[in-house]
Design a protein around this nucleic acid. Sequence first.
DNA 1: ACATCACCCCGCCACG
DNA 2: ACCGTGGCGGGGTGAT
Length: 324
Amino acid sequence: MQPHQIAVLMLDGVVALEAGIPAKLFGSDGALRPDGRPRYEVRACTVDDKPARTSAGFRLLPDDGPEILAEADTVVIPGIQRGRALVDGTLEPELAAVLATIRPGTRMVSICTSAFVLAAAGLLDGRRATTHWRYGDRFAALYPKVRFDPDVLWVDNGDVLTSAGNAAGLDLCLHIIRADHGSDVANRVARFNVLAPWRDGGQSQFIERLVPDPTDTSTAATRAWTLDRLDEPLDLAIMARHASMSVRTFTRRFREETGLSPNQWLTGQRVERARHLLETTDLPVDRIAELAGFGTTASLRQHLHARIGVSPVAYRRTFRPVAG
DNA sequence: ACATCACCCCGCCACG
DNA sequence: ACCGTGGCGGGGTGAT
């Protein structure tokens, strides 16, 4: 089977760190098939075949030209620090021309400020999108037709995906791998690259305390404790008691440290547990609901559907095609 | 599909 | 005055 073709379009003023993200993750050994063949093939190009000036004092010389865009299954555009899309909502004619060569239906991915480019191309009209928080006001003002969400690491519209600043591109690429091939493959890629498979802090761009003070009371130990007993009934009172805090303080600290409310986080962890079990075991769905801590199968179905839009059985069929 | 109900979440504010 | 804590109210959400 032909590997999924990923084209990285490096524009003038590209952020060097972000230009390397797709190749590093999609091209990781962790993303290889069991038979050793690649799942993804990553190439990079510029608009005009010339080196791209980065914002870091060096240039990037791609091996391929913009003709790869027309053959790509996914196009990733790393963030930029200049360009018309950032200034007046238009595209340079040369950029518009190469974007026009991309086949309809190609999955479009932006990292950081390149959401401006997708928006200027009209690809985000009427859809949810995000970008680097520092550019949020400008983004909303320049592109009023886009439903800007300032408070997430990434937004997945299926065929158009946008991510927040810099390292959020890692989270989005991991998400894409997870969506394409399941969380086991995504977790392996994360491990190969020494990344957190699921950023502690969930979706929020604004984690007030990135590193909880270890001498201070913290919710981290309680989160770890919770993960060992996901199959048990857990509520705020139980978690707060484990953390030796009042419910009010626990709730407040939890949001400060993770960006999520305790229950949002807990549900997320339960969904991840269920996904893992669906992928790696043949246990019946109601048993998985039980082990992941969902009271009922209906509850599991609802949360799985809300997160990834598929039923448990459909999910298993996608990622576990050979029933064991 | 719908109603009911428990629990969650968080602004508010008093307390130490 | 300042700051972290935690009880309370009640709108909101999710489970049944």
